[in-house]
Computed example of a mutant assay.
Amino acid sequence: MRGYQLVSGASGVFRAEEARLHRGRTDTEHPGYSGAAYAVLEEGAGGQAEWEVEAAAPASATLALRYANGGTADRPMDIAVNGTRVVAARSFRPTGGWGSWATVSVPITLRTGANTVRVTAATAAGGPHLDRIAIS
């Protein structure tokens, strides 16, 4: 995993293949992802994707997660920054197919230096497929 530097006013894009995955894997079966692969969180609660983000200064930011949910049910996930859950069971609604991508956004706070952004599947169905996160 590579570290990233965010500067004031800049945005950072962090691809799924750059994430540290727990109970997950990368895949390329479904079209429309933006990097070399997307992340698949295995069935069951607890699958995670985690990125390390470097911030030049403390900042309020927006975290945008690009995902696909080809199932018929919501696949909620917890979102945490630096070990603190900022959103519990955030909805990741069906997108109409595993190759149909949507984005959800949440506000976050970054501290100076290294920050860990983690998403964790919150239900037995697992999480949606993750293409990337963007911080702006």
Rank of each mutant, 00 (worst) to 15 (best):
A37M: 09
E29P: 04
D27F: 08
T109S: 12
L41G: 01
V40E: 10
G35N: 14
N82H: 07
A121G: 11
G113P: 07
R90A: 15
T112D: 11
T109H: 04
G97A: 12
A57D: 09
L21R: 03
W98H: 06
S8R: 13
A10E: 10
W98S: 03
E18I: 02
G24K: 00
L130N: 02
S34N: 11
G32Y: 04
G83T: 03
Y38L: 09
A49R: 00
P128I: 02
W98C: 03
R85V: 07
A55D: 04
L63G: 03
A89C: 11
R90L: 15
A64W: 08
R111F: 02
A64Q: 14
V117F: 00
H30C: 05
E50R: 05
L41F: 04
D27I: 04
Y4C: 12
L63I: 11
A19N: 05
S34A: 10
A89Q: 15
V81T: 08
R2C: 09
S100Q: 14
S34L: 12
P128C: 03
N115Q: 09
A56F: 05
L21Y: 03
V106M: 05
R118S: 00
V117Q: 01
W51G: 00
D27W: 11
G12F: 05
V7W: 12
P107F: 12
M77T: 00
S11Y: 09
M1L: 12
L130I: 14
L6W: 15
Y67M: 00
A124H: 09
A80R: 01
G99L: 09
G83R: 04
A59S: 12
G12A: 13
E42N: 15
T120L: 01
A61L: 11
I79G: 02
